[in-house]
Computed example of a mutant assay.
Amino acid sequence: MGLLDRLSGRKAREEPQVPEPTAPAPEPVPSLPSTSPHSDALRDVSPNNTLLASATMTAPQGRLYNPYEGLTAQVGPTKHVFRLPEGPEFVFEEEASVRRRDWTQHLQFYCGGGYLAGGVVGVACGLYKFAVDKPEIVTDTLKLKTNRLLNTTGSFARPFSNSCGILGLYFSGFESLYVYQLEQYGLPDSVSTLLAGFTSGALFRLPRGPRQAVVAGAVGVAAAGGITALRKVFPSL
């Protein structure tokens, strides 16, 4: 029809144009503070005296450490001083709340430490016996001396190491058990240590009779008292 209208000279009817729907205007986005490295130049970065004073009052006490101590002539005035904490720092709060080793670490520490201490005492006794006793053979060569030294120290070190290792095993096990059982009654840990010393000594000497067990238990209480006293100086025991 458009071609016929043009040939006949009639104007084509203009169709009404439908306005296209306009999209709603976007809402203004609130401006966020800039995080670029150059944004510090647009704000006051000088420290607040009030906040600095409050932070100084609540800061933990500790020893001041200057990494440039003694190098003032080379690096100039002191740039920064660090405050070192007096106690150990922990990443997790669970580690900071732990007051003692768990029973497996306790077992390894006392069993291994007792075996090592018994070996040292046994070797010392063997060396003393080797130095005091005279050989029956006059012609004592270097190989015979070495053999006699090893036999003497070994005969003392083996029973001492095994006995002290067993005592450490008994002590660590009973102390962990008593601490777990008596902690709910609010008793101090020293009571559990003394009870563990008596039980360990009595159980170790029980095959030789009740009298020997009681005497060994008393010796164990004395040794546990020594451990309790040493823990005030060396808390890692």
Rank of each mutant, 00 (worst) to 15 (best):
P159R: 07
R99A: 14
Y178L: 13
A117Q: 09
R100T: 13
Y110V: 01
H80F: 14
R99M: 04
T152P: 06
F156A: 06
L169Y: 04
V120Q: 01
F109T: 07
N151W: 12
L116R: 01
A124T: 14
R101Q: 07
Q108F: 02
D102M: 07
V91T: 11
G114D: 13
T193R: 06
C125E: 11
T193G: 07
T139L: 13
L64E: 15
R100Y: 15
G126Y: 08
T104Q: 05
H106D: 10
G168R: 07
D140Y: 12
G62N: 01
G118Y: 05
F90D: 03
R100N: 11
N151P: 01
L167D: 02
L169R: 06
Q105L: 10
E69R: 11
S190Q: 09
V132C: 08
G197T: 12
G165W: 01
L206Y: 11
R63F: 11
S163N: 08
T146W: 14
R83P: 00
I137H: 07
Q184W: 05
L206R: 06
D102G: 15
T152M: 09
P77D: 11
T141F: 08
D133C: 11
E69V: 04
S172A: 15
L150Q: 09
A73G: 09
S190H: 09
F198V: 14
G112F: 02
N162K: 13
P67Q: 00
Y170G: 06
N162I: 14
V120P: 02
Y110F: 12
N66D: 15
P188G: 07
P188V: 03
S190R: 02
G173W: 00
D102E: 05
E183Y: 14
D102Q: 08
T146P: 00
G113E: 01
Y178K: 04
R63D: 10
S190I: 09
V138R: 11
V179N: 08
H106E: 12
R63M: 05
T141V: 08
V81S: 12
L177M: 04
Y180D: 07
F130I: 00
Y110A: 01
Y185T: 10
G126D: 07
G173V: 03
C111M: 06
F130R: 07
R205N: 15
V179F: 04
T146K: 05
Y170V: 08
L187R: 10
A73L: 06
S192M: 02
S176C: 13
R148C: 03
F156I: 00
A131K: 08
T78E: 14
K145D: 14
K134M: 15
L71R: 09
S176K: 00
A131M: 11
P88S: 10
L206E: 01
F198T: 07
A96C: 04
L194Q: 05
Y180A: 12
H106C: 09
S97P: 03
D140V: 09
K129C: 04
V123I: 15
H106M: 12
P85C: 09
N147A: 15
A117W: 01
Y128S: 04
F198P: 04
G197F: 10
L149T: 04
F130D: 08
L144Q: 13
L187D: 05
G119Q: 05
L64P: 10
N162G: 11
L71Q: 10
S155I: 06
G87Y: 10
